[in-house]
């Protein structure tokens, strides 16, 4: 992978869910794979996350949600991305996401869903394929 500018990724924890093992593992994996990673820490509001994504000029927005509230949170994120006119970015969501919700998330605008059990390599490959 040779690029002049490295791909920038924001890994974010929206909502009140305090489980960050997965988010940190993804952040670490992406750093090891050569991406520039910004991790928000826990309990960020959708607004904070969207503004951070705009400010950091990231190419990828990754959300980790394990509380089951992925649909309302992603809907809020989508509205805020539009409201704040954030330039198009690759949007991925991971966590405890049942199969039957994947289509709904894609309909909202999520590009890739990586539920618990996904391999870390899959996430790297997905980003590399989509951003080239």
């Amino acid at each position: 992978m040779s690029r002049e500018k490295r791909v920038r990724v924001l890994v974010a924890k929206p909502g009140l869910d305090g489980h960050d093992v997965g988010a940190k593992a993804v952040a670490r994996t992406l750093m090891d794979a050569g991406f520039e990673v910004v991790y928000t820490g826990l309990k960020k509001s959708p607004e904070e996350i969207v503004l951070r994504a705009r400010e950091e000029k990231v190419d990828v927005l990754g959300l980790s949600i394990l509380s089951g509230s992925h649909i309302p949170i992603c809907q809020q994120i989508k509205n805020l991305l539009d409201k704040h006119e954030v330039p198009p970015l690759l949007w991925i969501v991971g966590g405890n996401i049942p199969l039957q919700d994947h289509d709904e998330l894609r309909r909202i605008g999520v590009d890739g869903v990586f539920a618990v059990g996904s391999s870390l390599q899959e996430i790297i490959d997905f980003i590399n394929e989509r951003i080239s």
Partner: peptide, 11 residues
């Protein structure tokens, strides 16, 4: 609370 949106009664 606005921060509770989507989380009430969830987990």
């Amino acid at each position: 609370d606005p921060a509770a949106q989507g989380e009430v009664g969830r987990v």
